[in-house]
Nucleic acid binder design. Sequence first.
DNA 1: GCCGGGATCGTCT
DNA 2: GACGATCCCGGCA
Length: 196
Amino acid sequence: MTRVGKDFYMRDSLTVARELPGKILVRASSEGICSGRIVETEAYMGFKDKAAHSCRGKTPRTEVLFKAGGLAYVYLIYGMYFCLNFSTNSPDKPECVLIRALEPLEGMELMKKRRGTDIVENLCSGPGKLCGALGIGRECNGEDLCGERLFLLDDGFVPDIAASRRVNVDYAGDAAEYEWRFYVRANRFVSCRNIK
DNA sequence: GCCGGGATCGTCT
DNA sequence: GACGATCCCGGCA
């Protein structure tokens, strides 16, 4: 079991998104420790990707993406839910990877309490859900992914990974067709299991 | 089990 | 002023 270091994030988001499934995300807060194995990701490739927040340049919201990779990019969606992304690559390439689903491991009781359900499949099977389960909000934006509150472990497990179109980016023209979503095949903790 | 609609507000135009 | 990188609930089967 090793900690994932900064170098891992200093590559393009497609490469990172493909290698993330199987890694273990650990979240430590005042309420306790939670962890889960990443089972679903999406790559957002910066300027060359019309679905990416950063494709039209730097704004107050996307500022974190214009720094070296290895930071959390957290934003509010639909006015009610948060999404967790890992920034990747160099400051001139504002790319990131959306974390879409986890297979819950540690801290099951705390995650159930935060989510208000005992159904394990519903704890982290979606971007908004996993932020709820892990207690991730706007205060995590810019958080170092190699710190003590949020980090990644590698236990050597390599799952069987499939690719598909990304979820809910129909507005993005050609970019909507790119198969930049990566998920663990036949895993019951993946969101949108009808999309192949 | 599947489907449709509503919630809710920060962000950018 | 419009619109989401979503989720939940209710209705119907």
